[in-house]
Design a binder for these strands. Structure first.
Ligand SMILES: [Mn+2]
Ligand SMILES: [Mn+2]
Ligand SMILES: [Mn+2]
Ligand SMILES: [Mn+2]
Lengths: 223, 223
DNA sequence: ATAATTATTTAGATTTGCCTAAATAATATA
DNA sequence: TATATTATTTAGGCAAATCTAAATAATTAT
């Protein structure tokens, strides 16, 4: 069995690998797990010992097969719990991450199997992030940022890139939510800002490029 | 904030106080938390330092007001989670204790408030143990063991004393469950064994005194 | 190609919770 | 009451995860 701390390190490494690079630095991990780089080095030695990562000093780190499995399993649990918190307990999407950070470490295969079934085997969490199945397979949608959408082609909101509560609360206040329809009316050349119609409202909305690129969408009715 | 370990010690002390004695011994705690007595002594000093218990060496230990509050809160969480696991996820009553031992340490007031509401503010867990409210108040029923029931007075099963999975599985297999009606037909002088009718079955059942005293009941329709 | 800067690792400590063995106090027995 | 037994505490250490400061390697800039 792995400690809660080990799980968090593996998850951090996984998230860093997910965003591009093949080799992950000590400092990047330190920032994510909020510890001193020296502490990260200690843990990397331990994880390498256990064959959960591949690590050679000064050369960065990458996940082994078993390490990746642990990381994906934690992510699965995190997202299932987030879904539960929003759909069953009525939390809003900006409140669930910290609680899920705790719940993701509960150890019981049966619990997750049953929770998954109870929730109707959801495919995405409240932020649109895909929930891997019990084999660790992701069924990710082929989303694009709202900033890249063609004018006058209707799209559906399917997720966010920025997960900060302050951003999520802003979106909620403005009426944006997963499943909502958006029709982009204009993209301003000068600053890449977007003018759009949000389903349910007749008033044009205007958002910056920076907001638009943090909203993920899909063209309406993809089969 | 208190560590998971501190919480478990306080819960153990609470449970020992619950069963009678006013002063709790180091060895009794050691048995419950499954550590060496020397380790318990260490922890008792720490808990006393934090004013969570009253402790003088060789004199046993008792809970302070704040220590009791922590313990009751953990018990509330444990029992709410057990209720959730049985009622929502479909676990049987012999499977939930170990998972609840983990879930009871999740720290979020909002989570428990919402979980309690989602579950319909249950008053008892799957084993009939009362769930304290948010103020730590128990609304316990005035139950008696089945072994003490008067012949031919119908009673309802409201709980168990023995919580061991093996006992719970035996009861389940035999058809006993919370809410079921029992009519005691005979109590044998010689060994205090009980002959009874269980609602839903026409066949007389015969159980030992030892089983009977571990089943808690209430006279039918108490107002 | 050197020098300066930045990243990473090592060294040495600390905290929490636990252990075994030994010392001491409390209790039971003779 | 004196002695044997049992309970409890103290002493000394260990493992996990962390820290700061110092040493070393890698990278970037001159
Ligand atoms: Mn999250
Ligand atoms: Mn999420
Ligand atoms: Mn339980
Ligand atoms: Mn219970």
């Amino acid at each position: 069995m792995h400690s809660l701390t080990e799980e968090n390190y593996l998850k951090a490494i996984y998230k860093l690998l997910e965003k591009g690079e093949k080799k992950i630095s000590t400092t990047a991990i330190a920032a994510l797990v909020e510890t001193a780089p020296a502490s990260v080095t200690d843990m990397l030695k331990k994880l390498a010992e256990k064959k959960l990562i591949r690590y050679e000093k000064y050369q960065g780190v990458t996940l082994s097969g078993s390490g990746k499995k642990v990381a994906v399993d934690i992510i699965r649990k995190h997202r299932l719990w987030e879904f539960f918190l929003v759909e069953k307990l009525g939390f809003s999407w900006d409140q669930v991450h910290d609680i899920a950070e705790q719940l993701e470490h509960i150890k019981s295969e049966a619990l997750i199997t049953r929770l998954d079934h109870f929730l109707g085997n959801p495919k995405a969490d409240p932020h649109g992030d895909p929930i891997p199945d019990e084999h660790g397979v992701f069924h990710a949608l082929n989303t694009i940022p709202l900033s890249a959408v063609t004018v006058n082609v209707p799209v559906i909101i399917t997720g966010v890139i920025d997960h900060r509560p302050v951003f999520l609360r802003f979106l909620e206040k403005e009426g944006y939510a997963l499943g909502k329809k958006i029709l982009v009316k204009e993209k301003l050349e000068i600053d890449q800002s977007v003018t759009l119609l949000l389903s349910g409202s007749k008033k044009l909305k205007h958002i910056s490029h920076d907001v638009a690129r943090n909203i993920l969408v899909l063209p309406e009715k993809t089969k």
